[in-house]
Nucleic acid binder design. Structure first.
Lengths: 233, 233, 233, 233
DNA sequence: CATGAATGAGCTTTCATTCAT
DNA sequence: GATGAATGAAAGCTCATTCAT
């Protein structure tokens, strides 16, 4: 994830009062801001805390970001750099069953997004979208639409190849997305501070979701009987 | 809605016009606070706005709630009042297939929680849990654990009756919960302010999730082949 | 002067912490702001000082004025309330020589403007006009133009009646205005802090200016010889 | 202009291109500072702007001036360098009528001070005198007292030679000074940003002031009758 | 010497909280 | 009880000043 580029070994050197590290600063600040914004929310995070976590003074932050709001926008943008081009290419080249493709999607998502700080953006957007409509629009174009499109293509491939049952794709994508996005949010909220969450192993969560989804998408020999309200006595 | 509990008997007192609904104040404040906290988050909501929305002055709010934090806690507590006793009773009395039971769960959840303001609590907890650990614990005991237990019983009933395949219940409950909780959060965040979200019809979303989950939990005649990494050429 | 309306006996009562004097506040704040802005300039005056001088807290100031800049604008506007209507009426009704009229102008100006806090506005505008173009335009319309017009009428009356010699009125008005405005500015700057200024008695200053101006405007029997450069002695 | 004194011999040093004019730096900084201080006032001028206008970095400014205040003081001191010795010499040598002498004073003042950046000092002192008492005292000794003395001598010469009427010199000097100093201030404040000011031609302004002052100082054949309040015409 | 990244005191502004009415 | 004027701690942001390079 982009943020990682910057953290590297910032801690390893002794900082003098006026050490110049101009090109490293923005990344360090963005990483610090991401962490705190995700943890405490935008409004409850003080710029001084961000600066402190990045190892600089309050004033320095404002050299690189004109305002707290600009910092927020930069955090979101920084962590959304188009990964979709790469993923779409992977989709084109994938050889294998659609079930495998879907499993790969989920695993890769966890590996590259879910388990990294980038997953914090999901929680951040959910928490702050309504306070930053401009960012919400940006996020919709940069993440939601490409994401839906990609998952839609994966599912459609399965349908086209007779591997998945036909579904309304508009809602179908959420079969895959909802469990993953919930995981991302859970991880950064209750999962980070309550017992129930502490015990959840993401890989196991994903494994069960994957098999259930695949089973759910499969074409059954005998469909389950349509239910009538409180049918059986 | 839980909040209503508070106002409910407010009508019964007959005073002069100007003093009417005096004991309804806390309920009105809680409703206003829920709405604004959900929309803007705790920190970004001003108590004056809450008071205004409730039709009282800022000072009045502090007569009923010692601080903004106490107001927040009251909002959460008030809106997760134990409905589980009732629901557990429904579970005991339910006559019908486990598939129907699960469908009923999802439908009832939407009707009583998802579509009401109470769903905002889910978003609130996700956004603020880490700032209110005490509340997170409370929420875990009052909502998460009973919720998991209830869903767990529903699924276990299906397994026990040979209707659902056996799964690790610790993760199994999320098969049902994740799509619903994601819907609740989405509705109050991006869904409330971006195009993609505007077009989502919750009932249709839930219907597809329900059938997919049931299909996913079903015992298949022929299980899908275990996948090897990039099996087919 | 408008400002005076407010100072009255503010000091005479004992202030409790939360005493309510809502309608008196703006005036007290404007008076305090005028004093400090004139003394130290806009930028060098801190809002907290203004509040303190007005006997309120920092926060209170912002209840009445949205920003420091709005406070500044209000100070200027407050002290410019149209006195010109009244003065123009006086002009119409004046019975007497134009010399007397001019003397009366200067005396009245000192009495109602020059000697009061309102004269500080002159210094304030001179110091800050270029930082507040919007206010400069406002001041031009509300003060400069009516002022020039009024003085112009007074002088023109004298010319028309054969009392004053004919002059280009565009520059003529400054014969009267310059000495008065200089006095106002001097009084609030060097005059307030240096020995030379301390000894200047405004009434005497004005008396001499008046007689010299009148003499200067008079129609001489024998005009002074046109000078050639460095005429022989 | 005084500032030039500083640069003057800067051309004589022959270095490499990049090092050229090294010793001109302070002069360039002072010129830049004068311009900005006059335009925006001391407090509202940022040292970075001054440095930029002088073509150097912020840090460089502090090599030459210990603080912003010191820079301000240097600007004032630099621009009021004693021209009075020269002017007093001119006074001694002047051959001609006192009227001519006075006309020459006004013309020369405009030429050497009024029309140059040095006139900005007048505005600067008026605006900031009370924030810099030390400078005010300095200014009083270096400018005000010599200036008053010089003008006083000119007027006294006229009186002594029977050319001007006798006046109290303490106030008499302002007959000459007030219109000129007002012009200087006007030019750098409202005159620089409002329509009324834009149309004022200084030479014409001075010409009319000169003739009116001379007329006003002249000994009249028939003095104007002492006015009684509202005397009938 | 010159630079400009970094600092942090200081200022404007906000807003939860108080309390006289 | 209800009000809303008043408070002041706290937060965002600025900018004179420093100093390693």
């Amino acid at each position: 994830m982009p943020v990682k580029n910057f953290d590297s070994d910032a801690q390893s050197c002794v900082h003098a009062k006026h050490e110049r590290r101009k090109d490293a600063r923005p990344g360090e600040l963005l990483a610090a801001a991401l962490e705190l914004f995700v943890e405490k929310g935008f409004a409850a995070t003080r710029v001084e805390e961000v600066a402190k976590l990045a190892g600089v003074s309050k004033g320095t932050l404002f050299i690189y970001f004109a305002s707290k709001e600009e910092l927020f926008k930069a955090v979101v943008r920084e962590n959304i750099s188009g990964r979709f081009e790469e993923w779409n290419a992977e989709f084109e080249n994938f050889q294998g069953s659609s079930a495998d493709m879907l499993r790969y999607c989920l695993t890769a998502w966890w590996e590259h997004i879910g388990s990294t700080k980038a997953s914090g953006i999901t929680k951040l957007m959910m928490s702050e979208a309504r306070n930053f409509p401009e960012l919400a629009t940006f996020y919709e174009h940069e993440v939601i639409q490409p994401g839906h499109a990609l998952i839609g293509r994966v599912l459609q491939r399965g349908v086209d190849r007779g591997e998945f049952r036909a579904i309304d794709m508009k809602y179908g994508v959420y079969i895959v997305l909802a469990p993953m996005l919930f995981l991302a949010m859970w991880k950064h909220s209750l999962g980070a501070c309550c017992d129930a969450g502490a015990q959840l192993v993401p890989e196991d969560y994903i494994a069960l979701q994957a098999e259930t989804i695949l089973n759910g998408l499969s074409i059954r020999q005998t469909p389950p009987p349509l239910s009538q309200k409180n049918t059986a006595s």
